[in-house]
Design a protein around this nucleic acid. Structure first.
Length: 659
DNA sequence: CAATCTCCTG
DNA sequence: CAGGAGATTG
């Protein structure tokens, strides 16, 4: 039906980056405030402490914005809290020393008689408390920072202290420490904590080493990615193609990323990257490898962390038992389904299930749901959308690591490769576009979004691109910033590692609807390919596709109804010649249509649409005049004409943040 | 047979 | 605007 060339604009590798600087190749969405610095700057300086600093900074930002964020499960008194035996006053005191503000959080749970969540976060701590806290944090700092960065980290910690925006931060920490504390609470707290912290220190140190090496590795991969575009004009096409297919196969099976890195770098050194085909091949290969690297790295990290957690706190297994989660039955079922579904596709992993949002797997949807994602409520304590709330406990997180993250990473890479460096990734954000534009509802947003939003709203992002950007995003994917932090930061890590996942919309938002309506001014019968092209921030599946198609069907319905109505009206009004009927911007037909598709009237309706509307009106007029409407299918002829009048949707619409 | 469309209803 | 039924299409 639709005559618009369907795939015309989809894959044009040659347009992607030929004349752009390396920096511009980097995904704009990677340039978040949090990680502005190029990755290379991390090599000498303490990477993780740097990122930790940033992380703390950002957490502080959101806490400042959100007053006190009270995780719902904490408020309700999570089973973990409840499962803790009633403490002696001494133990409680010691516990509260270690966990500081956490005690205020948990005081809302049964067994505590204090003021609960209303506890004043600014209440001063005793010197004793502060001393103990300082000790704990010193250890954290030891893990988190190297000498050169230490003073800064201390400053940051001090600021954290001052602001007391640590409820969330500490809550995680407390949960990790809890079992160990219980275990030793009668046997001398400081000594046992010391031992535990030393062993954790070692663990974290190992992790840190591992992650640094992974980060280096990924950084190299990123550099190769960039080099690919530098070798714009070279030869050896056949050679490359041959090698490429061979090595793609090989590398996909390779256990060692460095193998690929080596090969790619050899290739690149040979200057074999020239033709579009070669670029495409390499793009594919790099996409696969990057996705896999990210996936594996995340896997590795979490496997490791999970082991630590299981050692230190057996109660803290993820997605482990209903008792420890407060998770709804439905979520458990979804979890089970996901687990079994993924079992074949993914290797064993420590975190069995991160899935709790049904919309993540529309295939499993069994009931009719409204498909338009609404804005989450502003109340921080009220129910918030799965996509944006801080889920507690861990397995209530809507995130999926091992299968969704690679998918989305590659989707983003695909977007880059398809649309080039200048396309706006703004809409690829943690939030529906509607949220991106709002300024007052940060309460329920994940803290990443705060940094995102400034970028999102700033439109095109190309000017800040630097070569480190891809590496940075990779680092994000690996949650490196959290590595040196407490293992209790796992939740945060989960959020970080799936940062990219959140960038792709799982559902259609009101802004998508608005965009679709504006697109209707150009195309009445968009193919699903066109829809996919113009909604790059939407994770397409059967459900989403049909919803979009349904939208346009509804648009058409309204359109044709209006046309018929006004055609009949013209006949009633005694219009004797079609030529007397024209559609202008101030005529009633247009007003009706504009009101429907462009309610805000902030869009300049293309002239072509007026022409099409006029033609439609004429067709209806003629048909009715000729009494063709006695035929039950008389409209079909008109539809057939109109569907040929689609025009190209402007490129601007391809930007996810067009609205 | 799946995808898509129109029509109808809520 | 969504959902369902029925028709059409490739």
């Amino acid at each position: 039906m639709n005559l618009t060339p369907p795939d015309q604009s989809i894959h044009k590798p040659n347009e992607v980056c030929v004349e752009d600087s390396k920096a511009d190749l980097m995904l704009p969405c990677f340039h978040r405030d949090i990680y502005e610095e190029p990755l290379s700057s991390y090599h000498n300086a303490p990477l993780i402490s740097h990122l930790l600093r940033k992380t703390i900074h950002n957490k502080r930002s959101i806490l400042n914005n959100t007053q006190i964020y009270m995780p719902p499960t904490s408020v309700a008194g999570s089973s973990m809290v409840e499962s803790r035996p009633t403490m002696t006053e001494a133990a409680k005191d010691d516990w509260s020393n270690l966990s500081s503000k956490d005690s205020q959080l948990e005081s809302a749970s049964p067994g505590h008689s204090s003021s609960g969540i209303s506890a004043e976060p600014e209440c001063p701590l005793s010197e004793h408390v502060q001393a103990k806290r300082a000790r704990v944090e010193n250890i954290i700092r030891g893990m988190a920072s190297s000498p050169s960065d230490k003073s800064h980290a201390e400053r940051e910690n001090a600021e954290m202290e001052v602001r007391y925006g640590r409820e969330v931060y500490k809550e995680n920490k407390r949960k990790q420490k809890l079992p160990q504390h219980q275990e030793h609470k009668h046997a001398g707290i400081s000594a046992t904590n010391h031992d535990a912290n030393i062993s954790r220190d070692e663990e974290c140190h190992k992790l840190r080493i591992q992650l640094q090496s992974m980060q280096r590795l990924l950084h190299q991969l990123q550099e190769k990615f960039l080099q690919m575009y530098d070798h714009g004009s070279s030869e050896s096409e056949e050679k490359w193609e041959q090698q490429d297919s061979d090595e793609l196969d090989m590398n996909m099976n390779s256990e060692d990323n460095s193998t690929l890195e080596h090969k790619v770098s050899m290739k690149l050194a040979d200057g074999c990257l020239s033709s579009q085909r070669n670029q495409k091949n390499l793009q594919e290969m790099l996409k696969c490898e990057l996705s896999r690297a990210i996936s594996e790295s995340v896997d590795m990290v979490f496997r490791k962390i999970s082991l630590i957690l299981e050692d230190q706190s057996p109660q803290l297994r993820l997605c482990q038992s209903p008792e420890c989660t407060g998770m709804e039955k439905r979520d458990h079922q979804a979890c089970a389904r996901e687990s079994s579904d993924l079992e074949n596709a993914t290797k064993p992993r420590p975190v069995e299930c991160y899935e709790s949002t049904p919309s993540h797997s529309p295939e499993h949807q069994t009931e009719a749901l409204s498909l338009v994602v609404r804005k989450p409520p502003l109340n921080p304590l009220g129910p918030v959308s799965h996509a944006v709330k801080r889920p507690y406990p861990l397995h209530q997180s809507p995130f999926q690591f091992t299968h969704s993250t690679p998918l989305h990473d590659s989707q983003i890479l695909e977007h880059l490769l398809k649309y080039g460096p200048h396309t706006n990734f703004g809409g690829i954000s943690c939030l529906p576009p509607s949220l991106d534009r709002s300024s007052t509802d940060s309460v329920a947003l994940p803290w990443e979004s705060i940094a995102m939003r400034s970028k999102v709203s700033s439109g095109h992002l190309g000017q800040h691109h630097r070569p480190g950007a891809l590496g940075q995003v990779t680092v994000d994917g690996l949650c490196l910033p959290h590595v040196k932090m407490e293992c209790g930061e796992l939740q945060g890590m989960a959020e970080r590692s799936t940062f990219l996942s959140l960038n792709i919309q799982e559902g259609l938002t009101p802004n998508h609807l608005k965009k679709a309506k504006l697109m209707f001014f150009y195309t009445r019968y968009p193919s699903s390919n066109i829809l996919k092209t113009f909604f790059p921030d939407v994770k397409f599946n059967r459900c989403i596709t049909s919803q979009l198609i349904k939208w346009f069907s509804n648009f058409r319905e309204f359109y044709y109804i209006q046309m018929e109505k006004f055609a009949r009206q013209a006949i009633v009004d005694g219009v004797s010649d079609v030529k007397d009927m024209s559609v202008t911007r101030d005529c009633d037909v247009f007003r009706a249509l504009n009101m429907h598709y462009n309610k805000a009237n902030d869009f300049q309706v293309p002239e072509r649409f007026l022409e099409v509307a006029e033609i439609t009106l004429h067709e209806f007029y003629n048909a009715i005049s000729l009494n063709k409407d006695s035929d039950p299918s008389w409209k079909k002829a008109i539809y057939k004409i109109i569907c040929k009048l689609d025009s190209e949707v402007p490129e601007d619409f391809k930007s996810p943040s067009y609205l």
